[in-house]
Design a protein around this nucleic acid. Sequence first.
DNA 1: TAGCCCATGTAATTGGTTACATGATTGA
DNA 2: TCAATCATGTAACCAATTACATGGGCTA
Lengths: 217, 217
Amino acid sequence: MHSSHAEDKGRTGTAEALLGLLSIHPMSGYELRQLIEESIGNFWNESYGQIYPTLKRLERNGLVRMGEPSGKGRRPAKVYELTEKGREHLQGWLEIPAQRRVPRNELLLKLFFGDMGTTAQVRSQVQAFRDLHQRDLKRYEIKARSIASEYANVPAMPYWLMTLNFGRAESRAMLAWCDETLQACDAIDEQRRHQSSGEVASGPMELPRNEEHDAVG
Amino acid sequence: MHSSHAEDKGRTGTAEALLGLLSIHPMSGYELRQLIEESIGNFWNESYGQIYPTLKRLERNGLVRMGEPSGKGRRPAKVYELTEKGREHLQGWLEIPAQRRVPRNELLLKLFFGDMGTTAQVRSQVQAFRDLHQRDLKRYEIKARSIASEYANVPAMPYWLMTLNFGRAESRAMLAWCDETLQACDAIDEQRRHQSSGEVASGPMELPRNEEHDAVG
DNA sequence: TAGCCCATGTAATTGGTTACATGATTGA
DNA sequence: TCAATCATGTAACCAATTACATGGGCTA
């Protein structure tokens, strides 16, 4: 076990994201933010409020150092570069199993309580989600082609493609789920129409409201 | 627009998760926590540190009220129940489009920088992820069958199935992506073996390290 | 009687976004 | 000259987890 990771108790990867990008080439905090958006922006984000303090901390700990300021006439940017220690830290971190945190999926929360509203509401939520993924999928396809050709000789390229393919697989699955779910909404409406014509026979059953209830799961 | 949602600027759904569960039946903070785990636990979590203060706030605002304490000999639990105002709030919230936040996917972050380590490391990360989803998928399948039969007459059941089917679609897609990605690791190794036998001809190209570099995306 | 489950709450801490403050350079 | 982009930082705030504190009842 790397002792350099012993003190990283609650850290979630902010430092490593910065170190990783600095391993591509030295750059400033400002440039880091830009690059985050256009490279790992689909699955990771950092704000300036995180970036600048983290860079200072990394410098104090000797994982990065300041390099040549990029002047070019304008106010020179503080360019940070990875140190050997930083590189080792990054490599050690790759070894640590990534942990999943429970995501907070607002869409699913709304769907779970969908019976409190209308099928129209649920449909519109699902449709909006579908539109997003449709758009994402297109973006992924385009980007995958462009980086495959543009970085054909860059050794890191296959890894970048992996993360893009993750997005593609996810979005494709989500599109299918949306269609299935929209159909389920139809089925619910269908069901209700049948029920209301034979009203008296079988009304909807309620969950028991006393304390000796069944669990939902 | 519901004026009752005007003040919900930074709120993320904690209150609504509790209100939604209380719409199933009245219960205590403790019981809420249990139920969260076994019903919406795959896509939503709340700790006691959130639940108890939120319940108090909701009571102050008249969205829930205290009902009959559930005694049964032991220390009586404070049972909260949804008020009419709470029900209306919940219904209004269903109308508001769910927003996605950028997730922080640690696995993808590690993969993106995979070239800094070994394919063995990447493989082991992906394999662990695969195992989780394999296990999840089985759980989802079992649960889907059990709630479909157990709650056949509960009107909310189809909505619960939607959230489960989301998990199934996601896990299935993730399994496929994992397999594809493990193969990509093989391809990288294959590539490297070819390269090292014809060493001098074409070494790996590096990304430019000056300031006039290409963007990754 | 020790240990677990029931049950409620507060305090400390962290991780992260947003707003605020500042100012130079560039181009329309 | 006005807006946009480059560029760095701090302060305020918030959401959320974790640790801490307390104590009754049940059962092995």
